[in-house]
Design a protein around this nucleic acid. Structure first.
Length: 547
DNA sequence: GCCGTTTTCGGCCCGACTGTTTTCAGTCG
C-alpha cells in the first residue's frame, strides 16, 4: 500500500543513492519517473489495474515492475538493498545547498564523513582544509550552508502565499524603470499548486542596474550570487528568487526556458536537436544563425509547434498535441461573465448591495448569484428582505441577479413561507465531509458545490456533482479543488466554476489562481459553467422555488 | 533505466556561476 507521493519519494531516494554511487543516467531516469508520478491526476493503483503503468512518461519495464511491487507490498527489495550501500546520513548531505553527489561521495570515502553533523565537525577540526579542491572560500560556503540548512524550512510554498510576494517584486522592478519587460516565469507562471522558488525574467541591456534595483527592494534579505546575467537572492522570509536579465530579442526564448517545466524543456530541445537546431535561453539556432527567440510563439513555431499555454507545459502530451495544430482554447478572464458565488459583507445593507452591483457592472458581468442565506457552517443567516429586494431590483441593463442559499450536506432548513432561492450552493462541513443524500436537496436546484478540498472525499463530491447536475468550484487553499481535482472533474464531465473576483479585495489571489487551476486542468470556456452569457446559468435544470 | 517519422542500441538539454583551477569540475535550474 503506497500512495503516488510515497512512490515518487522512494524513486527520488533511489536516484540520490545511485548518484552517490556514481551511476551516470539511472538517477535521472528515476527522477523523471518520480516527477511523472507526482503530476499524475489519478491513483497509481487505478493505472496499474488497467495495466497501463508503461504509458506514464519515464516508466518502462523495470520501473513499472517496481511500482507494482510497491503498490502490492508497500515495500521495494531493490530500494532496501540499495540503501545498505551508503551511510544513511549521506542523503542528508545532498540536501545541503551547494553539495552534490560527487562532493558527498568524496567526503564519505576520503574523510569518512557520513552526515551533516560529522561534516561540520570535520570543518571545525580543520580536516577539510587539506583536501584537494577545497580552498578557504569553498569551506566557508559549506559552513554557511550547513548553518542555514538547520533553520530553514525546506519545502515548497503554496502559490496563494507566493502570490502577493511575487506581485510586490514585479511592481518594484517595473516601477523602477530599469528593465523594459518584467515577467514571472517558473512554476508560478505554470500555476502549480506550490512553488519552490520564484523566477523573474527581465529585459535590459544593463543587467547591473536591474540587479541593483532588485537587491534594494525591501523584501530582499541577502544576495546569494550575482553574475553577468543572473542574480539569486533570499527574501527576508527565506524564499529564494532567481532574476535573469536578457536582451529584448532573447525574451521569448528565455521565457520558454525559465517557465519550464524541466521535462517540457528537455522534450523541446530534443525535438530541436533532431531537426538540426539548437534551442537555449537565448534563442533558436541553426548553426550560428539565430532563427527565433523574440517571442514564445516564434520559438514554438521554429519547431513547427503551436504555442502552448504555460499551464500545460508539463510534458504530459501537450507537445504532441501542439505538433498536430493549435491547441483547443483554454478559459480566459474575459470568458468569465458570471459570478455564481459571491457573499455580501456581514450586516450588509442597501449601500453594500449597490456597491457590489456597481462593481459587477464595471466588470461587465452578465450575472451575479449572491448568497443571501446560509446554513452551511451551522450558523443560520438570512439577509433581510430589503437587501434581497434591492438585489432583485438591481437587475436590468444586461445584468441578471440571482439569490442563492448556501447549505451543508444536511440540506436546507425548513423554510415555510420564507424567501425563494434560485439555486443552492452545497459545501461540505468539517464534521461531515460526505455528499448529501440527494433527497435532502429536493426542494432546491443545486447550482454548484464549493469548498470540497482535495482529500479523498473530493472524488465522492465530484461523483455527486455529476449525478445531481451541479458544477464544482475550483480555487487555491486546502478547502478548494486544485488543478488535479479540476482535471478529474473535467474528465468526469462535471462543469467547473471559476470565481471572477467580484467582491474580493483587488490583490486577492483567489480568482487569478482559480483561473490558472482551471487552465491547468485543460478547461476551455465550455467546461466552465460561469462562462458565456447569462442564459447559460440555467443549464442543469430549472430553478426551483422553495417555500 | 528509458526511448525511438533517421534508432530495439546507443544515445541521454544546455548554459550560468563559483572556486579552484592555468582549462575545468561540480552544482544548479
Amino acid at each position: 500500500m503506497s500512495t503516488n507521493a510515497e512512490v515518487a519519494e522512494t524513486f527520488r531516494e533511489i536516484a540520490d543513492v545511485l548518484d552517490v554511487l556514481g551511476e551516470k543516467f539511472k538517477p535521472e531516469a528515476y527522477r523523471r519517473a518520480a516527477r511523472s508520478i507526482e503530476s499524475l491526476t489519478e491513483d497509481l493503483r487505478a493505472v496499474a489495474a488497467r495495466k497501463e503503468l508503461r504509458t506514464i512518461p519515464g516508466v518502462g519495464e523495470a520501473i513499472g515492475e517496481k511500482i507494482g511491487e510497491l503498490l502490492t507490498t508497500g515495500h521495494l527489495e531493490y530500494y532496501e538493498r540499495l540503501k545498505k550501500e551508503v551511510p544513511p546520513g549521506i542523503l542528508d548531505l545532498l540536501k545541503v545547498p551547494g553539495l552534490g553527489p560527487k562532493t558527498a561521495r568524496r567526503f564519505w570515502l576520503e574523510l569518512g564523513v557520513e552526515g551533516p553533523a560529522e561534516l561540520a565537525s570535520a570543518i571545525d577540526t580543520g580536516r577539510l582544509a587539506g583536501v584537494k579542491g577545497f580552498g578557504p572560500k569553498k569551506i566557508e560556503q559549506i559552513r554557511g550552508a550547513l548553518d542555514a540548512a538547520k533553520g530553514r524550512p525546506s519545502g515548497r510554498l503554496a502559490i496563494e502565499h507566493a502570490f502577493p510576494i511575487a506581485q510586490r517584486l514585479l511592481r518594484g522592478l517595473r516601477e523602477s524603470g530599469t528593465a523594459k519587460e518584467v515577467e514571472i516565469a517558473g512554476s508560478f507562471r505554470r500555476c502549480r499548486e506550490t512553488v519552490g522558488d520564484l523566477d523573474i525574467l527581465a529585459t535590459s541591456s544593463e543587467p547591473e542596474r536591474v540587479f541593483d534595483t532588485f537587491s534594494g527592494l525591501p523584501e530582499v534579505g541577502s544576495v546569494q550570487l550575482r553574475g553577468g546575467t543572473k542574480e539569486t537572492v533570499l527574501l527576508t522570509n527565506g524564499l529564494q528568487v532567481d532574476l535573469r536579465v536578457v536582451e529584448p530579442e532573447e525574451f521569448g526564448a528565455a521565457l520558454v526556458y525559465f517557465t519550464g517545466s524541466k521535462d517540457h524543456n528537455v522534450h523541446l530541445r530534443t525535438i530541436a536537436r533532431d531537426r538540426g537546431l539548437k534551442i537555449n535561453e537565448y534563442g533558436v539556432f541553426r548553426g550560428e544563425e539565430r532563427i527565433g527567440g523574440r517571442t514564445e510563439a516564434d520559438v514554438y513555431a521554429t519547431l513547427q509547434l503551436a504555442w502552448i499555454p504555460p499551464e500545460l507545459r508539463e510534458d504530459r502530451g501537450e507537445i504532441e498535441s501542439a505538433a498536430k495544430g493549435p491547441l483547443p482554447p483554454l478559459v480566459e478572464p474575459r470568458d468569465l461573465l458570471q459570478e455564481l458565488h459571491v457573499h455580501l459583507p456581514p450586516k450588509a445593507g442597501p449601500k453594500e448591495v449597490d456597491r457590489l452591483i456597481a462593481e459587477a457592472r464595471a466588470r461587465r458581468l452578465r450575472y451575479v448569484g449572491c448568497v443571501v442565506a446560509s446554513s452551511a457552517d451551522g450558523g443560520a443567516y438570512t439577509a433581510p428582505a430589503p437587501v434581497r429586494e434591492r438585489l432583485r431590483a438591481a437587475a436590468g441593463r444586461g445584468l441578471s441577479v440571482g439569490l442563492a442559499i448556501e447549505v451543508g450536506p444536511a440540506g436546507p432548513p425548513p423554510n415555510p413561507g420564507g424567501p425563494a432561492y434560485d439555486y443552492a450552493i452545497v459545501r461540505p462541513t468539517s464534521g461531515a465531509p460526505d455528499p448529501p443524500r440527494t433527497a435532502a436537496m429536493a426542494p432546491l436546484r443545486v447550482g454548484l458545490v464549493a469548498h470540497v478540498g482535495n482529500g479523498p472525499s473530493a472524488r465522492r463530491w465530484i461523483d455527486w456533482a455529476r449525478s445531481s447536475g451541479a458544477a464544482i468550484e475550483v480555487g487555491p487553499g486546502p478547502d478548494r479543488l486544485d488543478s488535479s481535482g479540476a482535471r478529474v472533474a473535467r474528465e468526469a464531465g462535471v462543469p467547473l466554476v471559476v470565481p471572477t473576483g467580484l467582491g474580493l479585495a483587488e490583490d486577492d489571489p483567489t480568482a487569478p489562481i482559480a483561473l490558472g487551476f482551471a487552465r491547468r486542468a485543460g478547461a476551455g470556456p465550455d467546461a466552465v459553467r460561469n462562462s458565456g452569457r447569462a442564459e447559460n446559468v440555467s443549464r442543469g435544470g430549472t430553478p426551483a422555488r422553495s417555500g
